[in-house]
Design a protein around this nucleic acid. Structure first.
Lengths: 258, 258
DNA sequence: CTTGCTTCTCCCGTTACGTTAGGTTTTATG
DNA sequence: CATAAAACCTAACGTAACGGGAGAAGCAAG
């Protein structure tokens, strides 16, 4: 009933390691009931219960320091703490879910394409990573309901759009330098606009709005990764301008003068 | 176009910290394009792209060492790596989900009860933590289909059962020492069996099976936490025996010798 | 008494930086 | 041009929860 276990026996019995037990002793989290004159640690059945508490709380994500407080204060004000801990865990879960979504999108594109351009890859990841910030930022430019609608697409739809966009961006990068007025380039822009229309619900006004707001974006404190280099962007800008002019959108040509 | 940024400017522009940039320099992950004779670091636009790659890969959960490999080998064998990384993340997610479930159950009980006995709390957590191991273990004792059915209850149902069980266990702990043959104690056992029937689908045979297998559990290498102390268990065993005898179940009275 | 197993106490290594401390360089201003 | 303020530098310790190794000592059996 009041058996004594050596540290090795105790470790085996409880599924922990000897090293961990010594560590718990060191930080005063769980001290053996008895220490022999020669310094050997001996644990009792009572210590098993204590260790179980520690393991359970560790599973819930508490640090050993917090656990120490709980067990020492002996006053389990769990309720609040558990609720708080749950919030923490829910946040971690959401983070991981975003990561998984990003991985899925990237994998999906690679299956379709076999490979992926590194800068496209980066901006893809970044889009998902910054989802919330982007949302808030867009809300400053276009109506909130539209923004929510944008992000409220089904997972499949998002996958598809991302893939189409990635393929298109790849083609565009290959086309850089070609005559912006050529049918090929204008065709790509057309495709891009088709996707944009698909997402935005089809009015060119939004695009106009976005263009008008460009000026402010220039010196954004934190820099958004664009999949294009400055040279590529200049070329793209030209092609875009031509496209929009042909469609009758007014472009207030503000040259990027610092 | 080929601007140079001091470390401070660069940090602000990219949303990292100065310390992080110095650390990346130290571990040869991202070295500034130019270092002045006095030792000051100056970064270029090219470094921005590198840093974006680093940030993106970090978001996906890669260690800086792995990232270093990727960027140095220049040979993005992402496909496999991404798939592997996804597996990792899915596992982490599952872990967190178990933790959240455990927290939910505990919170649910506390809302109902206002408090919770620490040993009941521990065994509750442990049940969820060990879910998979318990499953496997039970499959050795009762038919696999029954086991799967057991764990396939809805979240709500599980909550409810856990709460009822916890309340009952609390009452039982309070009743320890009372006459096992009294109506009160036998009533509690009856309630316990009601819950068991609810879960197991109502045959006493399973309980018989479980009782028969008790012998083997005794010296399980890794010790399962039970919410009862040995004394409490002994008392419970008696009450249980009386209950089952009255119901006509044969109990092969194997005294816990050794 | 020797062998072999268990345990002991240091102490370094891990990750990705944060945080001083104490000294130097660059930039801004009078 | 002198000096103050801002920015930057290196060096070094701290973090969380142990893992792993070195070298010494305890303990039971033959």
């Amino acid at each position: 009933m009041d058996e004594k276990y050596s540290i090795g026996e105790f470790a085996k019995k409880t599924g922990t390691t000897i090293r961990a037990l010594r560590y718990y002793d060191e930080i005063h989290l769980l001290k053996p009931t008895l220490v022999s004159p020669s310094g050997r640690r001996y644990y009792s059945n009572n210590d098993i219960i204590q260790l179980q508490k520690i393991v359970a709380l560790k599973f819930l994500g508490y640090s050993l320091e917090k656990i120490s407080e709980f067990l020492h204060l002996k006053d389990w004000d769990l309720k609040d703490s558990l609720a708080f801990q749950k919030q923490e865990m829910v946040q971690r879960k959401e983070h991981i879910e975003r990561v998984i979504r990003a991985l899925d999108h990237a994998l999906h594109i690679m299956e379709d394409q076999g490979t992926i351009n590194s800068s496209i890859f980066i901006s893809l990841i970044n889009n998902i990573q910054m989802e919330d910030e982007h949302k808030e930022w867009l809300k400053g430019l276009i109506p909130e309901s539209t923004v929510e609608g944008l992000y409220d697409l089904s997972e499949e739809k998002q996958q598809e759009l991302n893939t189409r966009t990635a393929i298109l961006l790849t083609k565009m990068k290959e086309a850089v330098g070609k005559n912006p007025e050529s049918d090929e380039v204008q065709g790509l822009i057309q495709q891009y606009m088709d996707i944009a229309e698909d997402v935005l619900g089809g009015s060119l006004e939004l695009i106009q709005d976005l263009l008008d707001s460009q000026v402010e974006i220039e010196d954004d404190p934190v820099l958004f990764p664009s999949p294009f280099t400055p040279e590529e962007e200049e070329w793209l800008g030209k092609a875009m301008e031509i496209y929009l002019k042909r469609k009758g959108v007014v472009f207030n040509g503000d040259e990027t003068s610092k």
